[in-house]
Design a protein around this nucleic acid. Structure first.
Lengths: 225, 225
DNA sequence: GCTTGTGAAACCGTTCACAGCG
DNA sequence: CGCTGTGAACGGTTTCACAAGC
């Protein structure tokens, strides 16, 4: 057997995937603290606000560097800066949204994006009846305008809010235009080239997971009672 | 605080958390296969449809029992049945939705729930202007009707689609009414008793995770080119 | 032959516990 | 003294590889 030693180019910039997801949550909590006028937090306090334990929080933050003060805690503003930089949020990112139906409509109007580093700059839909409409100050384009519009506005993330049947086709088009990050709300697994990142949100899956635990709780009670 | 040390009752019915999440995805893929008229799938095929590798899929299914046929594969209908049972989806579960703003509106109209084991049976909002309105055949109730309505309809899951500021209060009210499973769309960490399960969906967090990878890709290119 | 089901190994993430430092 | 930062231990998850069985 050939001893395949991993190249192990472990430059200090390696942040575990699980940590990345939590950094976003810490950022949210820190922003809230900042707005409340708090200047300093201990790992214990911030961990509570983020719903994790303090050891995990400290380890997560340690991947960014040593930005705390022993015996004191972390400066809120400093952490906000470092986490923002780590997540690539130093400048706003432009988002294109495809599918302006039920859910897409709601996403287009969601104010939370703007305050957290993102701006929806373009809307698309396949339905001729919707093309040309204006939603929250943006015109709905047809899919054939995808390339043109995405290059004019510098779009870095695509959001798919179409029915399942259209999603893979839309995805292929987004990839063809050069988009390499996709957030998918359609209940289907997308196939993409290796350089493209996809994250998915499936509401029914979330409910089904809750259903599983609900059932287990019911079974447990039955046994006891 | 309430340090609940689990007694570690490892009865054979223990399905790992990571597996539960994927079972829901398998179910989605199987339903699609079923509708397409497929009767039998191999682990390889189903794994591809679910976006995982086949070894993982087989191990996941093995927690439910041995329902495949060696040399052949799995019968679609059989698997659908077993996964549905495992997830507690043999009967429809009733869902209460709190917050009928932008997002809540979209969720109330999302047809995908009905076909996948759930039914939204009650809508609530704190805004007097919205109370009494009808949405997709359901009346919007005020928060003071929560107890009454949730007990009349047997609600097993609560969905919070309110602004962040209202979410913890709404959550407390749901818990008080006896709801032990909550899906939270508000960008805040909810505090709940130990017997209550919370799952959260934060759209901005998802985008920030994509942003991280997008940045890393950009950094990588810079280095090469 | 082919594909499932599964121990064992490798991997990753979390928790512990304490050294290090302000 | 208090809190951060971190090696080491632990537990859960994924992958490997092959025996079992149609």
């Amino acid at each position: 057997m050939t001893e395949q030693r991993e190249p192990k180019v472990d430059r200090c910039r390696t942040i575990p995937e699980a940590t990345v997801a939590r950094l976003a949550v810490y950022l949210r909590a820190l922003t809230a603290l900042d707005e409340a006028g708090t200047h300093t937090v201990s790992s214990e306090e911030l961990a509570a606000a983020a719903g994790v334990n303090s050891a995990k929080l400290r380890k997560d933050l340690s991947y960014l560097g040593s930005y705390g003060t022993r015996g004191v805690g972390y400066e809120v503003a400093t952490l906000v800066g470092h986490i923002s930089r780590a997540l690539g949020l130093t400048h706003h990112r432009n988002v294109a949204l495809v599918g302006v139906g039920n859910l897409g409509h709601a996403l287009a109007g969601y104010a939370g994006f703007g305050t957290r580093g993102f701006r929806i700059v373009a809307l698309f839909d396949a339905d001729p009846a919707r093309i040309g409409q204006r939603l929250h100050g943006l015109e709905v384009h047809g899919m054939n305008a995808l390339a043109e519009v995405c290059q004019a506005e510098v779009v870095s993330i695509g959001v798919i809010a179409t029915p399942a049947g259209a999603a893979q086709d839309v995805c292929d088009k987004l990839v063809a235009v050069g988009i390499t990050s996709i957030l998918n709300f359609a209940p289907i697994v997308l196939t993409v080239p290796g350089n493209v990142d996809v994250r998915k949100v499936d509401l029914a899956v979330e409910l089904q997971i809750l259903s599983f635990h609900e059932q287990r709780k019911a079974a447990g009670l039955e046994e006891v009672g």
